[in-house]
Each structure stands twice: as structure tokens, then as C-alpha cells.
């Protein structure tokens, strides 16, 4: 009960934050009815998905201060579980998605246990490696489709059990629901015992341990929570795109994007990953869509995209949320 109260308790946020959150929620609720085209809808779906990924990453990367660059492997586990369960045994999404999350949780404990013997750069490199190894296994594993990936059967009529809809509006509301569950969870998490322990570990790991905090165990728990978050997103990706391969759901690019969005938005803050995703996803998609097909402008979209990332990180290493706070303090 107390947990639930904590999850819905936003009292410690400033008034502008609360007002902003309410307006943003109202906007999302009516968004599909504002007449936006399906590309814009698809971009907003991507934004919500990456916010979900980012919030997950934020537990270990933001609050825990561990540079984790291997989240794509858990996106892959979530996506593959849903896809394979559907193709092999026709198991509905609502059953296979939680199974995917459980597998991701189990796998993250197995990986996390040895991984958190490492610190700093070594830890970051190890996370990349584990993800790449898993991707390579999937590229060569014929049973799971190898490099060819897996295609989900298309149902002729909309099917709620298998999450197949003709209109993106349904996918939008579904990912939005997941997004809010994640927000409430994060609101609880930051005030939870584990949340405080992680922040303490981030500040000074030795001091934390001297106070009786089992730093390694805390990090493993946060790592697993993060993995569960992204596995949910992975399951969604499978039913949304209806085709997955190891490149689209397990690539290093994806891991870096997840970390980049959270870092650029503001790692370790409640709104950082959402702001980062709201900034980078539309920037990437719209720039690509507007400039990508123009002759004579090859690569301009990439240049603008990377220049903006560099400017933000040079101006305020704490990300966009850091910039906002800097202005508020003035």
C-alpha cells in the first residue's frame, strides 16, 4: 500500500514540473485525435518506446552511475521470446511478453553476477561484449532464424490477443500505458531503499559499503530491473514491426542509443530519459525523413543530429535536464 502511495505521490516535485506533467499527459491522451499523420504517430510511438528503454537504463546507469552499454541484448530477449512463442506455439502476446521479461530477469542475474565484479571502464566494455556475443549467437543460431530473423504471421483481422491492429492508434495507447506504468514505477523507485542505496553507491561506493550496503547486490538488482524494462519494450517491438532480426533488436547501435538518450536528457533524474528521447527520436526521424532522400544533402541529417548532441553535451554535461535546472536556479 505504501509502495502504491509512493508511486503516485508527486508532491516533492516543483509546481512547473507537476503542471508540465499534467499537460503532457493530457496531450498524449488526445494526441491520436489531433489529426496527426501515421508517420508522426509512429515517431511518437518510438519516443514512448525509447523513453521506456531510457527509464529502465536510468535505474542502473543514472541512479546507480554504472555506464551500461549492453541493453540491446535484453530488448532482443524480450522480442525473440514473443516472436518465437507466437510462431512456434501460437502463444498470445499477453502470455509470452511476461515470459520474456522473466527470461530477461533470469539472464540478467546470470550475467550481472560476474559482471559487477568489474568497475568503471571495464564494466562498460564487458556490457558491450556480453551483448555482442549474444547477438553473434543469434546471428548464427539456425533454430531461431539466424541472420534471417523471424517474421510474425499477419492476422487478417485485428487481434487483441496477438496485439495485431491495422491502426497505430492502438499501439500508441498500449505503449503509452506501459510508459505510465514505468513512470509510476520510477517515481516509487527513486524513493525506495534501493534507490537511495544506489545513489549512495554512485557518490562513494566504499563509504556506502562501510555503512553496510551490499553494493554489488544492489547493482545486480538495479541491472535486472533495467533489463526487465527493456525486455517489455522488446516484446512490443516484435508485435509492432512483425519482423525482427538480430540487427534490429540486438545491435550495439541500439544499446548506445538507449544510453545516449538517457544521458543527453539527464541521467539520474526522473524526467531526463523522457526529455532525451523527446529530443533525439523526433530529431533523428524527422531529419531523416525530410533530408534523407534529398539529392545533394547526403549526410546533412547526420551532421545536424550529431552537432546538436555535441553542443548539448559540451554546454551542460548533465544533459538537457541539467540545462533546465541551471536556468531555474537563476
Amino acid at each position: 500500500m505504501e509502495t502504491l502511495r509512493d508511486a503516485f505521490d508527486f508532491r516533492d516535485f516543483s509546481k512547473p514540473e507537476k503542471v508540465g506533467f499534467v499537460i503532457f499527459t493530457l496531450f498524449l491522451l488526445v494526441f491520436p485525435w489531433l489529426g496527426a499523420g501515421s508517420f508522426v504517430k509512429a515517431v511518437v510511438i518510438q519516443f514512448l518506446l525509447f523513453s521506456l528503454f531510457g527509464m529502465g537504463w536510468n535505474t542502473i546507469g543514472g541512479y546507480g552511475g554504472q555506464v551500461e552499454l549492453g541493453k540491446a541484448q535484453y530488448v532482443g530477449i524480450g522480442a525473440y521470446t514473443v516472436a518465437l512463442a507466437m510462431v512456434w506455439w501460437k502463444i498470445p502476446f499477453w502470455v509470452s511478453m511476461p515470459i520474456g521479461v522473466l527470461i530477461a530477469l533470469g539472464y540478467s542475474f546470470i550475467i550481472g553476477y560476474p559482471l559487477f565484479r568489474l568497475k568503471g571502464h571495464y564494466f562498460a566494455i564487458a556490457t558491450i561484449c556480453t551483448s555482442l556475443v549474444l547477438q553473434d549467437i543469434f546471428i548464427n543460431w539456425k533454430l531461431v532464424g539466424a541472420a534471417k530473423g523471424i517474421e510474425l504471421p499477419i492476422h487478417e483481422h485485428p487481434d487483441f490477443l496477438y496485439m495485431q491492429f491495422k491502426s497505430d492508434t492502438y499501439y500508441f495507447y498500449f505503449i503509452m500505458a506501459l510508459f505510465y506504468v514505468a513512470i509510476f514505477y520510477m517515481n516509487w523507485f527513486r524513493k525506495s531503499k534501493l534507490g537511495y542505496q544506489l545513489r549512495m553507491i554512485k557518490e562513494d561506493e566504499e563509504a556506502a559499503e562501510s555503512l553496510g550496503i551490499d553494493a554489488r547486490w544492489c547493482k545486480i538488482k538495479a541491472y535486472s530491473i533495467a533489463s526487465a524494462f527493456v525486455a517489455v519494450g522488446g516484446g512490443f517491438l516484435a508485435v509492432y514491426n512483425l519482423y525482427i532480426d538480430p540487427y534490429s533488436v540486438m545491435d550495439l547501435d541500439l544499446s548506445i542509443k538507449i544510453a545516449l538518450m538517457a544521458m543527453l536528457g539527464g541521467a539520474g533524474s526522473m524526467w531526463g530519459p523522457i526529455i532525451g528521447s523527446a529530443f533525439l527520436v523526433p530529431l533523428d526521424r524527422f531529419l531523416g525523413s525530410w533530408l534523407g532522400a534529398h539529392k545533394g544533402l547526403i549526410g546533412v541529417d547526420f551532421m545536424i543530429y550529431s552537432a546538436l548532441i555535441m553542443i548539448v553535451s559540451a554546454y551542460q554535461p548533465r544533459g538537457i535536464w541539467g540545462i533546465i535546472e541551471q536556468f531555474r536556479k537563476r
Partner: peptide, 15 residues
């Protein structure tokens, strides 16, 4: 990128 292709296909069809 397969997912970008899918999004752009929606743009082409609906927008």
C-alpha cells in the same frame, strides 16, 4: 533499418 522502413512506409501510405 527495417523499423525505419516500416515507419516511412506508413508515412508514404497515409501522409
Amino acid at each position: 533499418e527495417p523499423d525505419r522502413g516500416a515507419d516511412l512506409a506508413k508515412r508514404l501510405i497515409e501522409d
